[in-house]
Design a protein around this nucleic acid. Structure first.
Lengths: 252, 252
DNA sequence: GTAGCCCTTTGATATTTATCAATGCAACTT
DNA sequence: AAGTTGCATTGATAAATATCAAAGGGCTAC
């Protein structure tokens, strides 16, 4: 096995790609939130460098040894779980400032795949070292716990979506969630490009791609959004939100 | 407002209900897993006492301030999320040795309700103090992270269930999961009492109670299980497992 | 012990979503 | 520039699950 072949399979840390939380405009969204300057400098030292990924590349795969968590610096990811029996479920889409890989802490092995949906960049945060540092910096420890807890709460929201919503409600919730997250990052909440296919949206929402496509079309017919392939413009956010409040009859 | 009325609404810590991880037969399943004796003694000191709950009582409610996580010492709980628009989703069922309340860390407010489904007992673990102690005891810190990560992985499993399985597959997965957890606690994996109603099972599985009931009946007709109200006997675990492997046609 | 209530079961029908199939569109490759 | 390939849309039909309805059974509380 040639060394450069192996490099293609397992992309290494980009040499010289220095990252520093203290210089990062995502720091209020990301792990260093609320740290004092001196503590942030210690976190800077810990972060193992950045890593760039091309669209389609895996950040990690289920089964690989867990060593680090990752902060998305730029770009867009999906995570998905595959089971032996062939099921495939997209468990989330991650954008700048969000943390990837916490599923691997439990067993020291990644339990899902993380794939870049566009050219992306992440910061590598070695977990053992993060634990050591968080023993010393209480606010870092607490924020790590908050980030993990937030992931649990987010997952509960997805369960709610999958367990109680019908197709159009799911898609409306999905679009509003993306809108709100783009907005929080300084992008337009009303106009954006989807980085994922209809099939990936469908997997995330527990629907078939045709159902997703039909729901998009119906939203467009009703003047709620305009869709052109992956380009979405939300025309009526308030009315989209009312879709999430089902008629009295169906619940309660 | 009379003091004893208030006691009925918000049950206080049971006085004199001393709990000690070092004496607990769940310690290998629960938070103290892997601790040295001396460290376990320190955890004993931290644990705020036990609390008993009658069936139907809330351990905590969405909206309450978060202060502690809880370890189930005995009994059976459900957690559920309610949204303003009236949706209601059971997010999990918890039994002895499992940890409740980690959703509250994120915002310092509980985001779901935890209800005892039978007379139960929990240990109260004040979270701020747990963080302080885990700064000093690395194995405790690491295990806490593992417990939180395990919850994330569990949630991914529920997403998979809700996103990719049909009704009978969901129920089979549910029964096998209970079976395995009872087994891990020294109870029969083949025979147990359900603590929850068909409606609660349905909420958890994203199904209506009638669908759950029909699936139970069909399993019984096929000789997979025997059902009498809440009493379940699994007659053919291997065949129940094969239900989870869908025919080739439907996936891939 | 018994009345009442909640839970469960079962049937008939309606609704939603999946499946199968065909066509169109757009980006990438050569 | 044209061909190829993957992605998206749309229609017709099938399958799964929800909804509506009614009745029986068991547990609880009086």
């Amino acid at each position: 096995m040639h060394a450069n072949v192996k490099q293609n399979v397992v992309p290494l840390i980009t040499p010289g790609l220095k990252v520093a939380c203290s210089q990062c405009n995502l720091r209020e969204l990301c792990l260093p939130f609320g740290l004092l300057d001196e503590d942030m400098a210690r976190l800077d030292n810990l972060i193992g460098g950045g890593r760039k990924l091309k669209r389609g590349q895996h950040l990690y795969r289920a089964g690989e040894a867990f060593e680090s968590i990752f902060a998305v610096k730029a770009g867009f990811f999906k995570t998905d779980v595959l089971t032996e029996d062939g099921r495939d479920q997209v468990t989330g889409f991650q954008m700048a400032g969000e943390i990837l890989g916490m599923d691997g802490i439990s067993t020291e092995v990644h339990t899902c795949n993380a794939v870049a949906l566009e050219d992306s960049e992440v910061c590598l945060i070695p977990f053992t070292e993060l634990e050591m540092l968080s023993s010393e910096i209480h606010s870092l420890q607490h924020h790590l716990h908050k980030v993990m807890s937030r992931e649990i709460v987010r997952d509960h929201g997805v369960m709610m979506l999958l367990g109680t919503m019908r197709a159009e409600e799911r898609l409306a919730a999905f679009l509003l969630n993306l809108s709100q997250r783009f907005n929080a990052r300084g992008y337009s909440p009303a106009e954006f490009h989807l980085r994922m296919t209809r099939e990936e949206i469908g997997s995330y929402l527990g629907l078939k791609l045709e159902t997703v496509s039909r729901a998009f079309s119906r939203f467009q017919d009703e003047g709620l959004i305009s869709v052109q392939q992956k380009h979405i413009r939300i025309l009526d956010i308030p009315r989209l939100k009312t879709l999430l409040t089902p008629a009295d009859g169906r619940l309660g």
